[in-house]
Design a protein around this nucleic acid. Sequence first.
DNA 1: TGTACATCAGTGAACGCGCGTTCACTGATGTAC
DNA 2: TGTACATCAGTGAACGCGCGTTCACTGATGTAC
Lengths: 225, 225
Amino acid sequence: MAQSDTVSRILDTAEVLFAERGFAETSLRNITSKARVNLAAVNYHFGSKKALIQAVFSRYLDPFSQRFHSALDDLEARYADGVIPLEELLETMATTVLAVPAERNSLKVFMRLLGLAYSQAQGHLRRHIQAQYGDVFTRFTELVRRATPELPDAERFWRLHFMLGTVIFTLSGLDALRDIAAKDYHEQVTVRDLVRRLRPVVVAAMNAPLPPEIEEESHANAHPG
Amino acid sequence: MAQSDTVSRILDTAEVLFAERGFAETSLRNITSKARVNLAAVNYHFGSKKALIQAVFSRYLDPFSQRFHSALDDLEARYADGVIPLEELLETMATTVLAVPAERNSLKVFMRLLGLAYSQAQGHLRRHIQAQYGDVFTRFTELVRRATPELPDAERFWRLHFMLGTVIFTLSGLDALRDIAAKDYHEQVTVRDLVRRLRPVVVAAMNAPLPPEIEEESHANAHPG
DNA sequence: TGTACATCAGTGAACGCGCGTTCACTGATGTAC
DNA sequence: TGTACATCAGTGAACGCGCGTTCACTGATGTAC
């Protein structure tokens, strides 16, 4: 037995329960009893519930940011001028996002956790993630910036988050949507199928025409960049 | 004084706190002390915390479905052939979505509600809301079907949900995103500004080219390129 | 090689606390006769 | 008009419960001399 079977039992169980019900609704007693581990073990190994939540995130985000960094290295080596087509960037992100949970428990858990982290208003978790993993996202958005020079910075920011919303909402609520889809269309939907459908939608959204300028208001002269 | 000033004080305060921190993280003591109302008043007037949450939801969804129905009546009267352009349908939905919370407190509560309706894992709440308010959404999607005859049914279903994800994610996590946007671009974002940005993105996404058909399936000879 | 101590994962029970809910009660207003 | 009772919004205090955390403890293994 490894020196801490207990630690991974806790993490495995916690990520499933967190994804199912959220952080506040999952108690340490839920986790430890389902993991068949002593209640005090969470505080012994992690220090607090908050720290456990962050540890659950790290198990996904550490390998993700590592893989994503090296995938971007490969891309940058391939395009010597530093301008990587948008489709390639999105494709790479999709591949990396799908690769990580394939080894772990589920894509749904990962997406649900990301969604919870964003919607969590207070944001200690959000700030932790930003501080810990912000650089790989910064690098990605910089590459997207070069791929879409015609987009104002603010517009690009919002469109990336619009698409993040699409992906997180769809993949984290996949069970519910599958339910509805199966009832309406008698169709079984796989994650690969969804990604196939998502691709042209995301590309079209990023390439949509710019919204009309606002003229009135105060003199909104935000020079982006 | 109305026969129950207390009831509306509770509802007004509850929706603000629910929007700020979520349902589980908001206690009845938080609500009643901020509303300067007796703790027991919630259970007296509503019966339980769960019933209070549903009452908060109803204050948004009842007027929303009512208004949306009559807005669709108007549109159908205006287009005698029964085919309403997609842009009009989306515009109408956006207007209705924004009109309801304008009288009330926050768009965010409303968006959280819609998000919950979908992402609630076990789905008893989802099915309740589907049963209570499903007809207006069914009516809307039927009109969208007529406006986009070139889309296969399943494709339309998924694209509508992709866009629902964008809107729910963006507007329900607005505070977090505003935070990030303000830090990166020193720009204050209003809801109206966001809707202006969303419009071309949603239209482009709905009109995106169809994804390539899947041909192979079982004999998995995936061309890696 | 034997003894003493240190380290460490894990445990069982308890702690204080905030939670949703309940209950006996008040006091104002309405209704019946 | 007077009396008795009913209804109802609201109250203060307490209830039991599950929560995250703490603490003294065990027993196995490692280390020093």
